[in-house]
Write a protein that binds this DNA or RNA. Structure first.
Lengths: 183, 183
DNA sequence: TTACGAAGTCAACAACCGTTGACAAAAATC
DNA sequence: GATTTTTGTCAACGGTTGTTGACTTCGTAA
């Protein structure tokens, strides 16, 4: 069942790419099975349900690497993680685009909100420490998500056409200001 | 047809509230007509189609008021507009939550992207002038959308439980940094 | 070779989707 | 008051949704 090209992996890859970019409710199981080249009924066999397949893609997500970085590298690691695709070779989706795509979803919104609060905002605030850690963590995330939103989702020309290096410099400029809040 | 409580207005109010928070594809015409307390077939009669009803809600949107503010008031006006609900008395939705809710929509994403580029980013860059106007405009929008996202959509505790005044101070702190970029 | 369990195929289900047309009720015009 | 126009009601349509169960195919162990 864990052959490199097994049906399970085909489904998981196709589901991640589609769910994480279009959002849970905007993707049908037939979209996924067509992209994976397998029969519709196999979703039910391998993952129980559409929701089970979605949750299987969430289970792949590792803890946010920026939380393990040294204080000096925190900003660089945080910025980099927002642009790195989940799968090194291939698709565009990463865990942060997934969060953006699913937060307004009527079925998965609560799940996604919980992930941002407990897996990103809370541990980041603990790592930051100092004064107003929760507010500064939220501001940092707002910048990261906001810039990702402008570049990847709204595709504003000034951001989507620039090389990644320049964007990261802009994010860094804003992030420094966020971390200085309340001093 | 333009009585204060006419069917057309009931449909438009319900459609705005639902479309602008859940996103176009996540709302059915039966959801809207049930909320409005009218028959399903009347969407077709008054607006031609579901898409026509959605576009009618978009037609209500006035130009971004921050673009008319004096340079000194620009930041304050921009910040305030992101928290002000569309309808003074009542629902939560405003044009910016609408943009967030519909940008990943498979049918309305292109429309929404065009609005952000042409109605927000481009005129804001023209108003800012100076060096790197497009980049600074995009960064300012990233902050505004990012903070709205954290507060309203992800509902991060540190932002969603605070009074609006404190949030606006945080946004202002970040926005000043955005406008100083590239000096 | 046989037997067995896993893997894949296919058709169908009930529910929901946007939309339509025939019809009844109400309002406005003459 | 009669006629016309507007407005609202109801049932149905073709299509898509997630899910299921019966079936065939395949690989492997006895």
């Amino acid at each position: 069942m864990s052959q490199p090209n097994s049906t399970r992996k085909k489904l998981l890859d196709a589901a991640r790419k589609l769910f994480w970019t279009r959002g849970y409710s905007n993707v049908s199981v037939r979209d996924i099975t067509k992209a994976a080249g397998v029969d519709v009924a196999l979703v039910s066999r391998y993952f129980g349900s559409k929701q089970g397949l979605f949750e299987a893609t969430l289970a792949e997500i590792a803890p946010w690497e920026a939380l393990d970085a040294s204080p000096d590298d925190l900003l660089a690691a945080a910025v980099a993680s927002f642009s790195k695709p989940f799968d090194p070779e291939g698709d565009q989706a990463n865990p942060f685009t997934m969060l953006l795509a699913n937060v307004i979803d009527p079925e998965m919104g609560d799940t996604v909100r919980g992930m941002v609060q407990h897996n990103l905002a809370d541990p980041l605030a603990r790592k930051l420490g100092g004064s107003n850690p929760d507010e500064r963590a939220a501001m940092l995330l707002a910048i990261l998500f906001g810039m990702a939103l402008m570049r990847k989702n709204f595709r504003i020309d000034a951001l989507s056409t620039k090389p990644l290096k320049e964007i990261e410099a802009q994010i860094h400029h804003l992030a420094v200001a966020a971390l200085q809040f309340g001093d």
